[in-house]
């Protein structure tokens, strides 16, 4: 399978052995994976790469999972985030969901369930992105009608700015 056809995953966990093993397993399922052992690394990796889904451990030293989730959702509009937690409470799940997490999974998590959740998150990302692209196309088409070429350019520049 071509690298570009794979789902691009960002895996974040401070438990290095867990991160390494789960990364190896997910690679066998044809995911393209970048791993990070802390929040800072994850944020930096997300800036560089185009990820479809991020799987983040909740309890980490430094910037914890909730903070990473908040930053990633703010900076990467269509990135879906799954949270892994050793002790997921209802409060944690509510906080993470409010911040835009796709799902909160308890750790250790059944591997097949994790793979399933990643695929669901990816599908959601695609749907949102397609919907957005479709809306944008409709907007562009409506601009063409009854606008001067300069007016169209100005409107397109505005739309482009809003996307940044």
């Amino acid at each position: 399978m071509d690298k570009n056809e794979k789902i691009h995953l960002l895996m974040v966990d401070d438990e290095v052995k867990f991160l390494h093993t789960i990364t190896e397993r997910l690679k066998l399922k044809f995911f393209e994976i970048t791993s990070a052992t802390n929040g800072e690394e994850a944020i930096a990796a997300a800036k560089k790469g185009q990820f479809d889904v991020a799987v983040i451990d909740l309890q980490m030293p430094g910037i914890d999972g909730v903070q990473v989730l908040e930053i990633l959702k703010k900076n990467h509009k269509y990135l879906e985030v799954l949270i892994l937690s050793g002790h997921a409470t209802i409060e944690t799940a509510v906080t993470c969901t409010k911040l835009g997490a796709f799902k909160v999974l308890e750790k250790p998590c059944d591997f097949d369930k994790l793979v399933e959740a990643i695929k669901e998150a990816y599908e959601t990302r695609l749907k949102k992105k397609f919907q957005h692209d479709e809306d944008r196309m409709k907007k562009i088409q409506s601009l063409v009608l009854g606008q001067s070429p300069l007016g169209i350019l100005k409107e397109l520049a505005k739309m482009d700015e809003a996307e940044k």
Binding site: E15, T21, E24, R25, L28, G86, H87, K107, P108, F111
Partner: peptide
């Protein structure tokens, strides 16, 4: 609470490693 978190991490590693062996 911190001990149970540690034990969960250990079990998560064992569980994933056993899963990897199966794969």
């Amino acid at each position: 609470a911190s001990i149970s978190h540690e034990l969960k991490n250990i079990l998560a590693i064992i569980s994933e490693t056993a899963g990897f062996l199966n794969d």
